[in-house]
Design a protein around this nucleic acid. Structure first.
Lengths: 215, 215
DNA sequence: GACTGTAGCTACAGCTGTGTAGCTTCACAA
DNA sequence: TTGTGAAGCTACACAGCTGTAGCTACAGTC
């Protein structure tokens, strides 16, 4: 029995069945990812945020990687289910353009409906420390502006392109370029510069042929 | 004087002028990024890898963020210069398609020529802990395969698309989708689902009109 | 109302990284 | 040859996170 006057350091957390506790800890980890980022997820942080002590967490997971892995798996499954639910049933024999558009629509709707979930899936990028992230963002913004100017210049004088969302288009093109860079860094043999450059040409040609220059 | 028998714990590192030391430490940090990832860059790690003690590093930088920020700035500038050097001089009045292709070519060449530099710039993504990264990669691969199947199905029966690099195209389209998701997560008002879906439709329509279905 | 199993807690030892104060060594110059 | 200033080093206090051993409190059962 606790001697009178010797107050507990912490309130005794409400008891929970293991499975229930497990889910609660994953929820907690998800919350942390959304506030502190992936790097903020430590066994200690999860325990504190959940209002329990570390040994409780160690009862359910071996370490913080275990937590993250299970969380990602859980949210990944839910995310897929979420998209599947929103998709129209009879996609098989529909117009391909409509099909693709529907998929995109479902995806963006899903992201909007459960931002916390999708942040965990799409934003592990933000693991970099804040000052570095800040610098990156600024530098990237500058490059994107330049890229948007080029794109705008490209579209000028091509009838039918007035309504094109140039800024977004340029942003996504640049993103594709960056991903190309990553691919060749990770697998230079699988993705040689030649292959990537060819894809770049293919893409710009496609736009160019849909909207020919009439000057 | 050191008492005989009391060996120094470490050899006295060669002296360097501050500016020189600074550059050396940045080089060291870049090497660490390329081997351990961004997370591996701590004041301690840089000092050890450079063969000096921490106070030496603290003489040049306030903390590890300072190191990373300055490194990114330095490599960023060099990267831009690198691309500029490779670009043909007379781009202004050339065919837009050729211009874009040249830019892409220069970029991919630059990445291939200085992988360490570009890894620092393009791969902060890999900050996630290894097991998580492993799980992500596996999950992403599965989705990409599915996406590639859809894309292939889309191209079937459209003459002229036989030579298209479907896998790469699908990969980049998916990357663009993901970036769309990130945009709406970070700035829901600037990038509402409506806007992103419209862009998706625009892109697929563009492909569809260049390569009409003749079935 | 005592019994018991399990969920939760305290406490400790250990490791890694952070900054800093104060001493040592070196290189160059008078 | 000796002086001196700057570059390096040692050593310490501290902070945060990791795992784990062993004790305590609660809830359901007889």
């Amino acid at each position: 029995m606790t001697p009178p006057g010797t107050a507990r350091k912490r309130p005794y957390a409400p008891r929970m069945a293991p499975a229930e506790r497990r889910e609660q800890l994953l929820d907690t980890a998800l919350r942390i990812i959304n506030t502190e980022g992936v790097v903020g997820v430590s066994v200690d942080a999860v325990a504190r945020a959940a209002g329990v002590t570390r040994p409780v967490v160690y009862g359910q997971f071996t370490d913080s990687n275990h937590i993250l892995r299970d969380l990602l798996r859980r949210e990944g499954e839910r995310a897929l289910a979420q998209i599947a639910d929103t998709l129209p049933a009879d996609l098989a024999d529909a117009d391909p353009v409509a099909v693709f558009t529907h998929v995109a629509e479902s995806f963006f709707a899903a992201v909007t409906t459960h931002p916390e979930r999708w942040r965990a899936i799409l934003l592990p990028v933000d693991a970099a420390p804040p000052p570095v992230r800040a610098y990156r963002q600024q530098a990237e913004a500058a490059i994107r502006t330049q890229f948007a100017d080029i794109t705008r210049h490209f579209l000028t004088g091509r009838p039918g392109t007035e309504a094109v969302d140039v800024d977004l288009l340029a942003h996504l093109l640049l993103t594709a370029m960056e991903e190309g860079g990553r691919l060749t860094l990770r697998d230079p043999d699988g993705y040689p510069p030649r292959r990537l450059t060819a894809m770049a040409r293919f893409m710009v040609e496609t736009f160019s042929e849909r909207y020919p220059d009439d000057r």
